Simulated assay, not measured.
Amino acid sequence: MDKDYLKSVHRFLEEKHTSYRLTNKKSAKSTIEDSVRTFSHGINDELYLELNEGRATGLFEHGFFESDLSRSLRILEELIKR
């Protein structure tokens, strides 16, 4: 997979992760979650499956957002290092 593409996805998710951690407002967190979910719909199918442990839907859903985001960042870092 193209490393520049992986880096751009990682950069976007890392920025959102930082914003999410730094805000205490529920409305801001919800906006960030929506933004990341919308972004994820445009992710390359192969990468989406890898980030979502082989599942075709449900990445970054409410209730799993933080764990999905942390896992996705770890996976992306590993893919970039390859």
Rank of each mutant, 00 (worst) to 15 (best):
61 E>R: 14
11 R>A: 12
52 N>A: 09
49 L>T: 02
11 R>M: 07
44 N>I: 00
57 T>L: 00
49 L>C: 04
67 S>M: 13
41 H>K: 10
62 H>P: 05
36 V>W: 08
18 T>M: 13
26 K>V: 15
58 G>F: 09
12 F>E: 10
47 L>W: 05
23 T>N: 11
80 I>S: 06
29 K>M: 11
72 S>I: 03
9 V>W: 01
6 L>C: 03
25 K>Q: 14
48 Y>C: 05
78 E>M: 08
20 Y>D: 12
41 H>D: 14
38 T>W: 03
56 A>S: 12
34 D>A: 11
12 F>S: 11
77 E>S: 12
8 S>Y: 08
32 I>W: 04
43 I>Q: 09
36 V>R: 05
75 I>P: 00
68 D>N: 15
33 E>V: 08
74 R>H: 06
31 T>P: 06
16 K>T: 05
65 F>G: 03
13 L>F: 07
70 S>E: 08
51 L>F: 01
3 K>W: 03
32 I>N: 04
20 Y>C: 09
1 M>E: 14
31 T>G: 10
66 E>W: 02
23 T>L: 09
68 D>A: 02
31 T>L: 14
7 K>Q: 12
19 S>L: 13
7 K>W: 01
75 I>E: 07
80 I>E: 04
53 E>M: 06
43 I>S: 04
51 L>K: 03
29 K>F: 06
52 N>S: 07
51 L>P: 02
35 S>H: 06
51 L>E: 00
55 R>T: 03
36 V>G: 02
38 T>V: 13
42 G>F: 11
23 T>G: 07
14 E>C: 08
50 E>K: 15
16 K>E: 09
76 L>K: 02
27 S>Y: 14
27 S>C: 08
58 G>W: 10
68 D>I: 02
71 R>S: 12
56 A>T: 08
19 S>H: 14
77 E>I: 11
44 N>P: 03
10 H>K: 15
46 E>Q: 10
77 E>W: 01
52 N>W: 04
63 G>V: 08
18 T>R: 15
54 G>E: 08
16 K>H: 13
2 D>F: 13
70 S>Q: 07
51 L>S: 03
52 N>I: 02
38 T>I: 12
30 S>A: 12
42 G>A: 02
52 N>R: 03
70 S>R: 14
75 I>M: 03
7 K>V: 07
70 S>N: 09
32 I>Q: 04
11 R>D: 08
65 F>I: 02
34 D>N: 13
61 E>D: 14
69 L>S: 01
8 S>P: 03
7 K>E: 10
37 R>E: 09
62 H>S: 15
79 L>M: 11
4 D>P: 06
52 N>G: 06
79 L>G: 00
28 A>C: 06
53 E>H: 10
60 F>Q: 06
75 I>G: 03
24 N>F: 10
77 E>A: 13
17 H>G: 02
13 L>Q: 01
